[in-house]
Amino acid sequence: MSGKPLEKLVIAGVELHSRLFVGTGKFASPQAMAQAVEASGTELVTVALRRVDVRDPHDRTLAALDLTKYRLLPNTSGARNADEAVRLARLARAATGTAWLKLEVTPDPNYLLPDPIETLRAAETLVAEGFVVLPYINADPVLAKRLEDVGCATVMPLGSPIGSNRGLRTADQLRIIIEQARVPVVVDAGIGMPSHAAEAIEMGADAVLVNTALAVASDPVAMARAFRLAVQAAELARQAGPGPVSDRASASSPLTGFLHESKGASA
């Protein structure tokens, strides 16, 4: 639990009313994705940039989504170093018309862990080019400050590896990032259940980004609704002002009038 008051979520001057960001990949069908995004109540959806298949040029993954209803956050997935990320970012800006960018540099295909050095290098270049950079990072408080210092709009530390659904394995580091950050903290990656999302917001995170947990659920729409409610519940808890945490018990019932009490002989 965090005593951190809940402030408006503002990224690069834009207020977002939902603290749940949603990825649009890996869904079984375009319809399932569009319905889950709708049910989540999100205002911000991530997209990826890929080569067109010249032999079969029609992409259908986003066909069912009304792109005018959501702010797009294109990612640089597939980039293995800073140069590839910068190239993808420029293409993404031209394709989507937004300067917002989820910067991710993941050279290792097994764990998809982000490369901190290449991410920082790319961030410096992209901020200078006018991008609104939301970097995906390991839960490293020092790196988070360095990225903030070079002008990133948020930091997006992982809870556990992308798509693993393992929850906030980095909780202690996330707490330090949240404590020190002067930009919004978005917990990205590894959030597998609504309780994980609630835990992140209760901890003091400003938002969460979820994709796989929705996409691979048997009923993505119901799962999206569950995440929406969990995030709202955690926000409400933050507003309610959580009580202190203590190592010792503190009775909830009155400490007087027990049946075993005896005050000596009476007439």
Binding site: G25, T46, A48, L49, R50, L62, N75, A95
Partner: peptide, 10 residues
Amino acid sequence: IEMVRFVGGG
């Protein structure tokens, strides 16, 4: 020549 477009992704 590279032709790219945005698609569903996380």
